[in-house]
């Protein structure tokens, strides 16, 4: 769980930078970018929840 948190703290500055980057590409691209990263994050969370479920049976 804790490592998951670290991973995501990394995520956020990335988001920021990436957003700056796609300045030129026209906003729709940025939208796509934001939402796909978002979807990825959800997937990650889902996997994380399954994993920690298996590992921390006794929690």
């Amino acid at each position: 769980m804790i490592c998951g948190a670290l991973v995501l703290l990394m995520h956020y500055p990335l988001l920021n930078l990436a957003d700056k980057g796609s300045r030129a590409g026209g906003v729709p691209v940025m939208l796509i970018f934001i939402f796909s990263v978002w979807a990825l994050a959800i997937l990650l969370y889902y996997l994380l929840s399954k994993n920690s479920g298996k590992r921390n049976r006794y929690e």
Partner: peptide, 13 residues
């Protein structure tokens, strides 16, 4: 909405 999304693991903790 992105804020909560990003910090979700921390929030859960």
């Amino acid at each position: 909405y992105i804020g909560p999304m990003i910090f979700m693991p921390l929030i859960i903790l």
